[in-house]
Nucleic acid binder design. Structure first.
Length: 584
DNA sequence: GCCGTTTTCGGCCCGACTGTTTTCAGTCG
């Protein structure tokens, strides 16, 4: 579970919170290579995380003075000063000095499996390797062979790791990880009684992408590790011992399996679900109580006082169970302690789906088929949101075709029982912030979802103005996939998200979590910030076929990671209250 | 670098596995 490293700091000012975070993460990486005190390194990493997930813009907090920053957890006087320096100048003297001392490209070497800070430093100082390219050349020329501590097996492992890194066999989408995990669990545990095999790790926390799969087994586990490493689809065994094994699948995905005794199962599930930071905070809490927490249980001296069930571990630390989606050390332990854990939204709370496409544009099923599928899922309402005319390749609707679609929806609403089909559109926000259909046409619709599909490379200021103008349009109900990213394929466009949130809050508009696993946009950080600012969130699937309505779970996963309760979610309301929200 | 109803100094989470070694450092999660 090697964590993703943010790329280097951006050059320009007007920084968002992740921008601040990247500076401190880079300091941590460089200090690690320098061989600094690990706790000092952790202080920088914690600061990076704190800043990244802060609801309020760091810019604003910094302008209020040092005291406002010191009040944050893990931020003391030194870090507060550095944050203010960054806010004032856009630079950090300390980081510049570090980069003069340590080649910053060394950081990329840390991502190669088998290379940690010590070996990276040795490669740099004793072999002159400072980048992935250098490493590749040194391997090709056999220059690592003389290095103390670099035996033939390790060198081969590094060569493999480098190749992996090159082919980006890195993180996979949540839906692909789900499928891979289901296949393995079925193969290993399908017909075996008495064997418990469950998913832990970031997949259980429902992160938008996962780096590897963590599986946990207990019960009748004899021969399990041998069968695991021999599974179809295993390309390579990375490690195999008595209680754990790691393999790489042909797809490049790493899978770790741990076998634990039943009396430790809950503690192990807690431990291997993570996140690492949540675990550290929990073990500190144990230590404060004179206890010791590890994957085998919670111990008072030699005596195990909890371990078989995960909830018992939390209870023994005076905490209610904490949902896996919240376990990122973003305040969940404090909230749990104070009895303020949110009652998270669940799939059962969802009463409608507000973005879907049909055969009228680029969808594969008819309106009626979508409606029937939605009713089978127990929904009260859906909105049909085919594309407007701008998205020509998708067969977008012009005013005349939209008028005909409206007639068809009216007819379907006459026929169908127990479900209301709302008339909607996914209208494009043009470069100047106007929409691609006239107002009198939009006025005939129940739900207007405005989205950006073109001209993604505008400046941050232009994109912000464009979207804010659309949000101010009286006919617009919601902003769809608000940052435009495609996971693993396209980064979000440049936009001042806090400004978008303010506009949505001021205009009474909804922001969407597009739950398609390719988008998950808003992401969990953004959705949490929007909800905290009082903006209602609508979770939709962007379905292009009836079967896609099942993707709602992925949107709900991210909503849960964003701490959302049913009150935050517009489409957790019954139809009347949902429509009332649009009209306010 | 942070933090403090034990503390302003001395702590800071914990264990398995690997590879290169003769007793353990480094990596990983």
């Amino acid at each position: 579970m090697k964590e993703r490293r943010p790329s280097g700091p951006p050059a320009c000012r007007a920084m968002d919170n992740p921008g601040y975070a990247r500076f401190f993460a880079e300091i941590a990486d460089l200090l690690e290579i320098r061989g600094e005190n690990p706790f000092r390194i952790r202080a920088y990493r914690n600061a990076a995380r704190t800043l990244e997930t802060l609801a309020e813009p760091v810019d604003e907090l910094a302008s209020r003075g040092e005291q406002a920053l010191v009040a944050l957890p893990g931020i003391g006087r030194d870090l507060a000063r550095k944050i203010r320096e960054l806010a004032r100048t856009g630079r950090l003297e300390f980081l510049e000095r570090l980069k003069a001392e340590i080649p910053p490209t060394l950081v990329e070497l840390l991502e190669v499996p088998g290379l940690g800070p010590r070996r990276v430093r040795k490669l740099w100082q004793e072999a002159g390797v400072v980048s992935l390219d250098d490493l590749e050349a040194a391997l090709a020329e056999g220059r690592l062979a003389g290095l103390e501590g670099f035996g033939p097996t390790l060198i081969a492992k590094i060569a493999r790791g480098l190749a992996e890194r090159r082919e980006q066999a890195g993180r996979v989408r949540l839906d692909a990880a789900d499928r891979a995990a289901e296949t393995i669990v079925r193969q290993l545990a399908g017909r075996r009684r008495g064997l418990r095999l469950v998913v832990a790790g970031s997949l259980r926390r429902r992160r938008e992408t996962v780096h590897d799969l963590d599986l946990l087994a207990t019960g009748c586990t004899r021969g399990l590790i041998e069968r695991f490493v021999a599974l179809d689809g295993v390309r390579e065994t990375l490690a195999a011992g008595g209680s754990r094994a790691s393999v790489r699948l042909a797809s490049g995905l790493q899978v770790d399996l741990r076998v634990v005794p039943e009396e430790s199962f809950g503690a192990a599930l807690q431990y291997f679900t993570g996140s690492k930071e949540h675990g550290i905070a929990l073990r500190r809490r144990a230590r404060e109580r004179g206890l010791r927490l590890n994957e085998y249980g919670l111990f008072d001296g030699e005596r195990r006082i909890a371990g078989a069930r995960e909830d018992d571990v939390y209870a023994a630390l005076d905490l209610p169970p904490i949902p896996p989606e919240l376990r990122e050390n973003r305040g969940e332990i404090e909230a749990a302690e104070q009895g303020r854990l949110p009652a998270l939204v669940s799939l059962d709370d969802i009463r409608g789906d507000l973005q879907m496409h049909t055969t009228w544009s680029d969808g594969r099923d008819t309106i009626e088929a979508m409606a029937c599928a939605a009713r089978e899922r127990g929904y009260e309402y859906i909105a049909i949101t085919d594309h407007g005319p701008t998205v020509r390749v998708a067969g977008g609707l012009d005013a005349a075709r939209l008028a005909r679609q409206i007639e068809e929806i009216d007819a379907i609403n006459e026929r169908i029982e127990g479900l209301r089909v709302l008339k909607g559109i996914e209208t494009d926000i043009l470069e100047d912030g106007t929409l691609d259909l006239p107002d009198d046409v939009l006025a005939k619709l129940d739900y207007v979802l405005a989205t950006v599909h073109t001209r993604l490379a505008l400046s941050r200021r232009e994109m912000t103005r464009r979207i804010v103008r659309a949000l101010r349009h009286p006919r617009v109900s919601a902003l769809g996939h608000p940052t435009g990213r495609l996971i693993g394929r396209r980064p979000p466009y440049e936009v001042d998200f806090d400004e978008i949130v303010r506009a949505a809050a001021g205009e009474g508009k909804l922001l969407e979590i597009d739950g398609h696993p390719e988008r998950l946009d808003l992401d969990d950080h953004h959705a949490r910030r929007a909800a905290e600012a009082g903006v209602p969130i609508v979770i939709s699937t962007d379905a292009h076929a009836a079967a896609d309505l099942a993707l709602m779970r992925y949107g709900v996963d991210q909503a849960r990671r964003a701490w959302l309760t049913p009150d935050h979610v517009a489409n957790a309301r019954p139809l009347g209250r949902f429509l009332a929200l649009l009209r306010r």
